[in-house]
Design a protein around this nucleic acid. Structure first.
Length: 373
DNA sequence: GAGACGTGGCA
DNA sequence: TTGCCAAGTCT
């Protein structure tokens, strides 16, 4: 039988069962061994699923261990300061996930008496948990027969039926969700969810899929056509990332402490700490020391000396950033002309305790070397 | 539907 | 070097 994406009734129950059994046999034989596998604690599954959103297994593993050591239960997480949660998340990216995880722990303590939900709608009502994560948590954590549809599953299924529809389109997602639901077995749905993600992560990879080892090879349309690379179909090219430019100032007082500011609670790198900075006109060239002292004056700071410390280039999801960094010896004044939620003069050790992004760690690493004066 | 939201790895 | 992406969600 040749599957066809136009036949939305595919697969029939018998075909679905055969595919699930083949996949489970593959999983039993060569599924990956991962820290959250075989885990009975729903909280731990939850944490793993949040960390794994848009993030590779290899990156997540060390964070997962450190996070659970520090916050071993939903109660421990709910009792924690958000800043400490963000500190364990620093470098992992998408910091909104950490804020949502913490917020959800508080909601669970307040509204469920600390008991984790057992129903899909309850999980999906929590911040940071959408349809796929909710399904994954209950499938893996409670062996409930919910279908997941993440990047791996989209790739595997779109290849299996040679789906011409872009996978991120409404029509494409509808077909894939339906297919994912039909394939999800009533027996061992949790293992099945992990098995299909393993398949996508290790055999049915974006480039160079290892079809000969695939338990679904015989029925895979893309493989039959020799067009594995054509799927999943994506929409048109994305726009080029814009390029932004900034100044960052590492202002050091006579005790060697650095002036650091708290970013707003919303938006990019929310709630993380950074040195004072300023957006630059994209057309300007690297600022002169004269421009830097003018900027400091505008903030209300007088600097004794300043010197160029280096350039940091960093790429975010949606733009490139170049940061011209300067070291400044603080002479006097207060940061009255600068918009910051909060700021302070802190030692290197104290700053280590604050949550910072990878970008701002790179910038601040330029500040503890031979300062001016 | 499209864009915001991080980072490191890889072709 | 540049682009794409890896267990998505929210606005």
């Amino acid at each position: 039988m040749i599957p066809n994406s136009c036949q939305s009734q595919w697969p029939d129950p018998q075909t679905a069962q055969q595919l699930a059994e083949a996949l489970l046999a593959y999983y039993d034989r060569q599924g990956r061994s991962l820290p959250w596998r075989g885990e009975g604690d729903l909280y731990r599954i939850w944490v793993s699923e949040i960390m794994l959103q848009q993030t590779g297994v290899k990156t997540v593993i060390p964070y997962y261990g450190r996070f659970l050591e520090r916050f071993p239960s939903v109660s421990a997480l709910a009792s924690a300061d958000l800043a400490d949660v963000l500190h364990l998340w620093q470098g992992l990216g998408y910091y909104r996930r950490a804020r949502n995880l913490h917020a959800a722990a508080l909601l669970i303590r307040h509204e469920q008496g600390g008991q984790l939900p057992q129903r899909l709608e309850q999980w999906q009502a929590l911040p940071g948990i959408g349809p796929s994560t909710a399904a994954a948590i209950l499938a893996i954590g409670c062996n409930q027969p919910h279908a997941i549809l993440d990047g791996n599953v989209k790739r595997v299924l779109s290849r299996y039926i040679a789906l011409r529809e872009p996978v991120e389109s409404g029509a494409g997602k509808k077909i894939l969700w339906q297919m994912a639901r039909r394939l999800t077995p009533s027996q061992r749905p949790g293992d099945y969810a992990q098995a299909i993600m393993d398949l996508g992560a290790t055999l049915c990879t974006r480039t160079k899929p290892d079809c000969p080892r695939c338990p679904w090879q015989s029925g895979c349309r893309a493989c039959q056509l020799g067009e594995q690379a054509q799927f999943p179909v994506k929409k048109g090219r994305k726009k080029a990332k814009p390029h932004q430019f900034q100044i960052a100032t590492l202002i050091q007082d006579k005790e060697g402490r650095l002036l650091v500011c708290l970013r707003p609670e919303t938006g990019l790198l929310a709630g993380l700490w950074e040195p004072p900075g300023q957006q630059l006109d994209p057309t300007t060239k690297p600022p002169s020391l004269d421009q830097v002292s003018k900027q400091l004056k505008a903030w209300g700071i007088s600097g004794e000396k300043s010197e160029f410390a280096g350039v940091i280039n960093h790429t975010f999801t949606h733009f490139h950033l170049t940061v011209y960094t300067y070291r400044v010896a603080y002479q006097g004044g207060c940061l009255t002309g600068y918009k910051a939620q909060e700021y302070g003069w802190l030692t290197e050790d104290e700053i280590q305790q604050l949550p910072r992004s990878t970008l701002h760690k790179k910038i601040m690493a330029l500040g503890w070397e031979s300062g001016p004066g």
